[in-house]
Design a protein around this nucleic acid. Structure first.
Length: 141
DNA sequence: TAGGCCATCTGGTCCT
DNA sequence: AGGACCAGATGGCCTA
């Protein structure tokens, strides 16, 4: 925890009380802003925790970083979306076909988890097993 | 010890 | 004016 709270040093030789008031209200405002920012970031972090819970994390004892969480969420959504669109096209009985896809999704997610920790540095979107085909999601129609 | 990740502080900008 | 959001700076903790 870092705190370099605005310290009131030279308490006036000429006791300029108006200047003092200004300084104090500014300091108070700063501290309030800091508290709000802290709270905001805590909210953001709990949101990240929620996201971590719903995103695949197989094969990992270590929790995903924020960046990794976002990457994983993105590829996960892409993969689910792909399943959805493929289901529409497919003729096989829906239930059976979904089971099949779910299995493959699980193994994809597992290998993604391995890949993210095996490859140093480069966690590029292009390298994710859940490939991103933006054009294939029919978002426009 | 270097590098990655994180929490916090801070000043700036935009919005209400 | 005050709050929300953001990005940069800084320092602590942890791991390879």
């Amino acid at each position: 925890m870092k705190s370099c709270s605005p310290c009131s040093s030279d308490s006036g030789s000429e006791s300029d009380s108006k200047g003092n008031d200004k300084f104090e209200t500014a300091a108070r405002r700063r501290m309030a802003a800091n508290a709000r920012e802290r709270k905001r970031m805590q909210g953001l972090n709990t949101a990240f925790d929620c996201l971590r819970k719903v995103v695949p994390q197989w094969g990992q004892d270590k929790k995903l970083s924020k960046y990794e969480t976002l990457q994983m969420a993105l590829s996960y959504i892409m993969a689910l979306n792909r399943i959805l669109t493929d289901t529409r096209k497919n003729n096989t009985p829906r239930r059976q076909w979904l089971d099949l896809q779910f299995d493959s999704l699980q193994s994809e997610a597992y290998s993604l988890g391995c890949l993210m920790y095996d490859s140093p540095g480069e966690s590029d979107l292009a390298q994710l097993p859940f490939t991103c085909h933006f054009e294939g999601f029919g978002l426009s129609s």
